[in-house]
Write a protein that binds this DNA or RNA. Structure first.
Lengths: 228, 228, 228, 228
DNA sequence: AATGAATGAGAATTCATTCAT
DNA sequence: CATGAATGAATTCTCATTCAT
């Protein structure tokens, strides 16, 4: 019953991002289409109101279907959440794999990661938001699976930091701590970013990359002037 | 059922809003004691399960009282959340006022703030957690009030950063962005910190202070060696 | 549980009358004053919302007192209703006694009764309304008592009708039926009467007296022209 | 617990308002049957105990269903009341339309109306009772609708009276007042009428018709002797 | 694959009433 | 005589889920 100190996240307000592609589940059948619409509706509603505050009836209404019909696609409400979160983590790791593969060999891995993280999190802000906020509503098994993937993702950055430290580029006391600090910093962006604001994504990437480098004790990137 | 150690991140702010009635937290009368116990029980439960997932029955059971008795102290469930959040923000700002007053005149303001933020957030992790997670469950008016205080709190750090920039100590493109980045970084700590872990609070303060300074382009503090 | 066919009444809207005199209970003590205010508040509320829909809390709020204080004056909510209804019937019969005593010996008893009934019911419309509407909410014993007094009141008119029949003035098949018909007709007045309307009470009395006389097959009263 | 024979009186009206959806009363589907049973149970219970004193649980128990199931048929408790009252008024006006159509051309309209009103109100006494007692529990919009129909019904009698006055048959000062007086008189019947009593409906009709005619200053109907 | 109706549990809140102070 | 706090039961209504059609 007691679950203390769980999942604090700050991407409040979230939801400014583009909706997940409906092809995610690659279903061209009528049922598959409905399942995708359920996922989409649940994603929006969970992000805005929270898993516990959203009813199956609300989701059904959003989809334009009776509540009972949802159970043709998901066995329980919990299963919808599980699907959203597991797919999000899987997509995140997949997307990182793609990005790394496409990056030039001589690119700064830290820069690639920071840029990727910011872009991805801004474009999938609802999934990201849910992934932080609703962890405690996952059943233990599902929670463990997501946690594993989260750690895998963190390990990517930790690896980059350790490599950089070995090469003398970064001065880091605790790579695991630095990893968390950086990811927290970056993940906070969607909480305040607005497309309508004055800052472009590119500018945000630049600012944050500089801050991240600085926090690692790295020499500033001299290919550009002082950021700002 | 217990799934501890879930992710926490986010930006924070705050301002000297209207204080809640001081009687709210009095402890002298019988009713005041019950009200305090309600607050405490709700704090724990909201932090662990989330506002929407906690029932008044649960709170009452925790307090050792019938559900109806809660309504002698709080008109609605929402009012409990409102009280917890407004009091937290008020306390946070008050605590900062105390800390700043006690700090030596020649202390580095950034260091004082970072140290304060980490200590306070580690010592009041449930309030902090709720303040991030349950914002969306606040009714608009209450939300606006909390938001005002949050912004006032952020303004403290922004002020420190701008002063440092004027003095040439910090190289910051966008103080508002830097503020959010730093607060997100610091606020993420309670999500992974465990008293039983190997890192002391003092050590965490040191590591984060170095990272924060670095992120601001400040010269490292040479009174100690490489942080570690 | 089953109370079929009870108390249909039509004095809807009621409540245009003057409040009952607070001296009803002849209490000059502080407590007596509160009791009177409870009665008054309950009268208004019962008339407007119905006994079942009014809470002790509402009554207390109207009186400006905490709910528990009501129990210093009435043992139960039912007792308030009982007091209002029994006092109303007692007052009605008392008022009739007064009126008859004051009437000139040669006055037409029917005219006196009709005039009395209309005036009294218009001036005490809330009590009247409650007396019809809330009969079914009286406990059986209290109901029986009120019913007895109601029958006593009806018997007054029945007596007048029977006297008139014996004297050949009225042509009535069933005096008991005629009694109910006339009382229903008269009691319906407060449901539509408005002080702000174009009809004075005097005019209403005239119209109804003519109708009542006609319904009894009496020769019209030639002391005035055709009513209208 | 059973206290029968409580007072009933009042004025009534009605008009050809918007018909409720005709599916409301269908009986073909399983749900339609349940809805009809809900209506029936609520009718009985509201008539006996009053709207405010009846709980959804009680209605559900009467229907033999769980309380939640009621909400598949009526969105709120208020909606049940609304349905009962609107349908009653609609049925009353429809029934009058039928009766008038069937009456011989040379029949006395007043006689037709009085006979219709008495019969209809004796045969539908629960609906009638609720329609008088629970008006104040209708939400304003629903109340207005019922009121409109009530006035339309009253207008039928007012029309008859005015026609009779023009023809010199009736001597009436205020047809609107006379309408209310007559309707109050007639509507009071179900409050005391018992099938087991000594008076037949036919006899009651005769007595009341004579009283009504007399109250209008009409010559008594000489096709029968003194009513009785 | 969807509907309409149902279940059984549980939600927030209110109720009449009691009682120590 | 009034208060503030409590009880225990009840209130309307919503919930996730099931299932025959």
């Amino acid at each position: 019953m007691d679950q203390s100190g769980k999942g604090q996240a700050g991407t409040l307000g979230g939801a400014a991002g583009k909706p997940a592609a409906p092809e995610d589940t690659r279903n061209s059948t009528k049922g598959g289409q409905t399942a995708a619409r359920v996922r989409k509706a649940a994603l929006r509603l969970f992000a805005r109101q929270g898993y516990a505050a959203v009813s199956m009836r609300q989701i059904a209404a959003e989809v334009g279907v009776q509540p009972g019909a949802l159970y043709n696609h998901f066995a329980t409400k919990q299963d919808i959440l599980k699907a959203l979160m597991l797919e999000h983590m899987r997509d995140l790791l997949e997307a990182w794999g793609d990005r790394r593969a496409k990056a030039p060999k001589d690119a700064d891995p830290l820069e690639v990661f920071v840029s990727f993280h910011i872009c991805y999190h801004l474009s999938r802000s609802e999934e990201v938001f849910i992934s932080y906020m609703e962890l405690r509503n996952l059943e233990p098994e599902n929670f463990a699976e997501v946690e594993r993937q989260r750690q895998a993702y963190e390990a990517i950055l930790t690896g980059i930091l350790e490599d950089g430290r070995k090469m003398g580029r970064y001065h880091i006391a605790e790579p695991r701590v630095a990893t968390r600090a950086i990811i927290a910093m970056l993940t906070g962006i969607p909480a305040w970013y607005r497309e309508s604001g004055s800052l472009t994504v590119g500018r945000i990437e630049k600012i944050y990359l500089d801050m991240v480098r600085g926090s690692l004790g790295a020499a500033p990137d001299l290919t550009a002037g002082e950021s700002g």
